[in-house]
Design a protein around this nucleic acid. Structure first.
Lengths: 147, 147
DNA sequence: TTCACTGCAAATCATTTGCAAGGCC
DNA sequence: GGCCTTGCAAATGATTTGCAGTGAA
C-alpha cells in the first residue's frame, strides 16, 4: 500500500497539504464522495480548506488519471480513488454507490462501425435497489396488502 | 414504425400537443439532445412552449420508461428515445454522443456478492475521441513536429 | 522573483419549485 | 367542477471564474 503522497508523485502531481489530505481521503474511503462530502470531512482537519481547492484538486487528479470522476448521479459528480476495473451500482432509494465486480471477460470490442473511435475510458453503471432498500420496499408492500 | 402519439399511449402517458412534439422529436432525432436543444428546435413550431414543460415532460417520459436519461455528460442530462440495447460513446473533443453496438453476449451477471441487488437499468458509457476529432488531433500533432 | 497553489466572493447555469391560468373529461 | 398540464418567474444549488494573497523552488 503506497502513501497518498507517493501516489500523487507517481501520478505526476505535485503534493501539497491539501492535495495529500484529499487523496488520502479518497484512498481510505471507498464511498465515492461528492465535493461536499469531502469538504465536510476534511474541514475539521484543515479549517482553512476551501471548496474551490477541492474542485481544483479533484479536476487535476482526474486529468492526471489518479482518480475517476463518476457521472452516475444526476445531481453532482462523485469521485473514486479505486482504480481497479469495476462497475458501479447506485441505489435509487438510499443513493449509496456500491462497487460491483466487472468480470474480466466482459469486454466491449470495437466493431467495424466503431473501430476508428479512440476509446479512453469505459464506465458501467447499474441503477436499482440495494439489498437493504429492496427488502424495505418489499416489506412495505406486504404491509399494504395485509392491512 | 409507431407514431409518437401512439407510442405515448402505449407507455401509459396521456398525449398532449407538447408531449407529442417532444416525443416525436426524440424518435426522429437520434442525437441525444439536452433540454436546451429540444427547446431551441421545438420553440419554432410551438412558440409558447416553455422549458419547464420540457423538464416536466422528459421526467414523465423517463419515469414511464418511454425514454432513457443519460448522465454521460457531466454538465447536463441528455435524453434518448431509442430503447434498443446499446451503449454510448461521447467524444471528449466535439461532445457529440454516438450510439455504439453492445453485443448481446455482453452480460453483467450478478455474483455471490451482488445477487441481492435489484438491478433496474445498466448503462455503458465510453468516452474518448470520435474518428473525425481523433484524426484532427493526430494531424495537429504532426504539424507541431514538422514545424 | 517567479509561478503554481490556495481560497474568498461573485458569477454562471442547469434544474427545480411556487403558483396562477388554461384546458380536458 | 375538479384535476392534470402548462408556463412564467423566482429560487436553488453545484460548479466555475476572477482575482488577490501565499508559499515554495
Amino acid at each position: 500500500m503506497v502513501t497518498a503522497k507517493q501516489y500523487l508523485i507517481d501520478n505526476g502531481i505535485k503534493p501539497s497539504v491539501q492535495r495529500i489530505a484529499i487523496m488520502k481521503y479518497l484512498l481510505e474511503h471507498r464511498t465515492h464522495p461528492t465535493v461536499d462530502e469531502i469538504y465536510a470531512k476534511l474541514q475539521k482537519k484543515i479549517p482553512t480548506l476551501s471548496k474551490t481547492t477541492i474542485y481544483n484538486t479533484l479536476k487535476v487528479f482526474a486529468e492526471k488519471g489518479a482518480i475517476l470522476s463518476l457521472t452516475i448521479d444526476e445531481k453532482m459528480v462523485r469521485f473514486d480513488g479505486y482504480k481497479q476495473r469495476h462497475a458501479h451500482f447506485r441505489c435509487l432509494s438510499c443513493d449509496k454507490i456500491f462497487d460491483v465486480v466487472l468480470d474480466n471477460d466482459v469486454e466491449f470490442p470495437l466493431n467495424e462501425e466503431t473501430k476508428n473511435f479512440k476509446n479512453i475510458e469505459t464506465h458501467v453503471y447499474h441503477r436499482g435497489y440495494c439489498p437493504e432498500c429492496a427488502s424495505k420496499i418489499e416489506n412495505s408492500l406486504t404491509e399494504e396488502i395485509t392491512e
